[in-house]
């Protein structure tokens, strides 16, 4: 469980951390806490698995990763673990997840494939296909972004 104070720290960290020489000290003073206390809390959050990392999230398009393609694969149930692990080894693939199937949705493994354009993404997918033997897959190209935001877990009321 998280204390109200912990929620406040998390809420602050979901925004941008200050670009100052001592960002944690500045965050701490916003909450009227000591820098050392906040640093210890962050270490604790990491140990508890709550905090994955503190770092930058890029605009991949601007950094040259123009295409950001969701790809869905139809993998026989008995091969999901094996195939998922192979997909995870590809540096161009992120978010390799197993998801449920439905009558009108047979694809059970999802990957995000990152490349500079569609051709590059498709080349990566065909490499994955070659390595796994899974050749039933589709690309779900995004044609319009309606929203992309970070989750605000504990908005301040």
């Amino acid at each position: 469980m998280l204390s109200p104070q912990e929620k406040k720290i998390i809420s602050l960290l979901q925004r941008d951390i200050p670009l100052t020489p001592q960002p944690y000290a500045d965050l701490a003073s916003e909450l009227e806490l000591e820098e050392e206390f906040v640093l210890a809390k962050l270490k604790e959050f990491k140990e508890r698995g709550i905090l994955r990392r503190i770092g930058a999230v890029l605009y991949h398009q601007r950094a040259g990763y123009e295409a950001n393609s969701m790809c869905a694969w139809q993998v026989p149930a008995v091969r999901v673990d094996e195939v998922g692990k192979i997909m995870a080894t590809f540096p161009q693939a992120s978010h390799v997840y197993e998801r449920p199937t439905y009558d009108d949705w047979p694809y059970n493994l999802f990957t995000m494939i990152h490349g500079r354009n569609r051709e590059e993404c498709e080349a990566v997918a065909s490499e994955i296909s070659g390595k796994t033997g899974i050749d039933d897959y589709i690309f779900l190209y995004s044609t319009r972004e309606f929203k992309k935001a970070s989750m605000d877990y504990f908005p301040r009321e």
Partner: peptide, 16 residues
């Protein structure tokens, strides 16, 4: 310049 979207904490929603 817009290369960096955000600099901050990335949390595990499940763990939260």
């Amino acid at each position: 310049k817009g290369f960096i979207r955000r600099l901050g904490g990335v949390f595990d929603s499940k763990k939260l």
